[in-house]
C-alpha cells in the first residue's frame, strides 16, 4: 500500500526583506497522523504554518494540502483545513458563543447554534459562553480559538504552538482534542518548542532549523538518539570517583564532572535505567548520595546532538530561558 500524504511541501521558500524565514522546506505528513514540527524561536515554524494555510504566498516551492495545490486551488484548501495560529484570532467584542456561531455559519455548518454549544461544552466554556471574549483568560481564549478551528471537522488541522503560555491544566483539553480528532481521521500538523509535547502527540517529528527541516523521525527515535541525562550529587568529593564508576557501568557512557557541586552526569539511551535502580546501585556501592535525577532530553539537547549548535539564535531570550527551565 502506498502512503497518502495529506500535507506535502517541496522546497517552500519565504523571505521577509533580508530575512530568509524558510529556505526550502520539505514536509510530508501522512494521512491521519500527527506531525510535530519542532524548532526553537525563529526557526520558521509560524511562517511555514502561514504559508500552508494560504495566509502567505510562497516565494518558491509548492505544496499540496489534502490533494489540492496550495496556490492554484487555495479556495479548495481553505474548505479542508482548520487553523489555530500562534496568536489568538477571536473577536473580543463578541461572546464566545457568537464567535463560534459566526465561524460555523461561514463554514456552512448546518445547525450552527448546536455545533457552537457542543464545542463550548467540550472545551469547558459553557459558563463563559455568553460573556464577551475580551474578558477571557489566556487559557480560555486559546481553547475558544481551538474550538473555532474545529467548527467543521477539518481534514487537516494546523496548530501553531497550541499550548505555549498555557498552564499545565489548560494543556490537557488541548491534547485530548488533538487525540480525539486523529482518532476520527483528521491529519494534524502542530508546531511546538517542547520535545515533551511532540513526544506525547506526534507520530512523526520534523526538526526545523533556520527555515529547513534538519531531521525527521519518530519521537522515540529522536529521544533515544539523544538519550536521557543521568545526574547524581554526592556528599563529598571523594565519593565522586566511585559514583562515576557506577554511572560508567550503568550507562556505558563517559561521565562528566561538575566538581563545584560534587556532581557527576552521563547520558544513556537505555530505557531500563530507572531511578530506583540507579539509587539502589549507587547505595550498594556505598556512595553517600544527596540527589539523583533522570532528565528526559529537551529540545536544546536534541539540537546540540543533531545540529551541533543551539539552533537559531532567538530574538526572545526570555522565552529561551523558559524553554531551558
Amino acid at each position: 500500500m502506498t502512503t497518502t500524504y495529506t500535507v506535502l511541501s517541496e522546497g517552500l521558500e519565504k523571505r521577509f526583506g533580508d530575512v530568509r524565514a524558510l529556505r526550502g522546506l520539505d514536509l510530508a505528513v501522512a494521512e491521519g497522523t500527527v506531525c510535530g514540527v519542532l524548532g526553537p524561536n525563529g526557526a520558521g515554524k509560524t511562517t511555514a504554518v502561514r504559508l500552508l494555510t494560504t495566509l502567505l504566498r510562497p516565494d518558491a516551492g509548492s505544496a499540496r494540502i489534502a490533494g489540492h495545490d496550495l496556490v492554484r486551488e487555495a479556495a479548495a484548501v481553505r474548505r479542508r483545513i482548520g487553523v489555530t495560529g500562534q496568536d489568538t484570532s477571536i473577536d473580543g467584542d463578541l461572546t464566545g458563543r457568537q464567535n463560534l456561531r459566526l465561524f460555523a455559519r461561514l463554514h456552512r455548518v448546518r445547525g450552527a447554534a448546536a455545533r457552537a454549544a457542543e464545542l463550548l461544552d467540550r472545551f469547558g466554556l459553557t459558563e463563559a459562553a455568553d460573556r464577551p471574549a475580551s474578558g477571557y483568560s489566556g487559557g480560555m481564549r486559546r481553547r475558544l480559538d481551538l474550538a473555532a478551528s474545529l467548527v467543521r471537522r477539518p481534514e487537516v488541522l494546523f496548530l501553531d504552538e497550541p499550548t505555549t503560555g498555557l498552564d499545565p491544566a489548560s494543556r490537557t483539553p488541548v491534547w485530548d482534542a488533538v487525540r480525539e480528532l486523529t482518532g476520527e481521521g483528521t491529519t494534524v500538523l502542530l508546531t511546538t518548542q517542547y520535545l515533551e509535547e511532540a513526544d506525547r502527540l506526534a507520530d512523526d517529528i520534523a526538526l526545523v532549523d533556520r527555515g529547513r527541516v534538519a531531521h525527521t523521525g519518530t519521537p522515540a527515535g529522536l529521544k533515544s538518539l539523544v538519550g536521557t541525562h543521568v545526574e547524581v550529587v554526592v556528599a563529598d568529593a571523594d565519593a565522586l570517583v566511585t559514583a562515576a564508576g557506577v554511572l560508567d557501568r550503568l550507562t556505558g557512557a563517559e561521565p562528566s564532572f561538575d566538581r563545584e557541586r560534587n556532581a557527576v552526569g552521563a547520558v544513556t539511551g537505555d530505557p531500563t535505567l530507572t531511578l530506583p535502580r540507579l539509587v539502589r546501585t549507587l547505595d550498594a556501592a556505598g556512595v553517600p548520595l544527596l540527589d539523583a535525577s533522570l532528565r528526559p532530553p529537551t529540545l536544546d539537547d536534541v539540537f546540540l546532538r543533531l545540529v551541533g549548535g543551539p539552533g537559531t539564535p532567538s530574538d526572545h531570550p526570555a522565552e529561551d530561558e523558559e524553554r531551558a527551565a
Partner: peptide, 16 residues
C-alpha cells in the same frame, strides 16, 4: 482592530 486581533487572519483561512 480586526487585523490586530487576528480576526482578519482567521477569516482569511475560511472558505469565505
Amino acid at each position: 482592530q480586526d487585523v490586530h486581533r487576528g480576526v482578519t487572519d482567521r477569516l482569511r483561512t475560511l472558505p469565505v
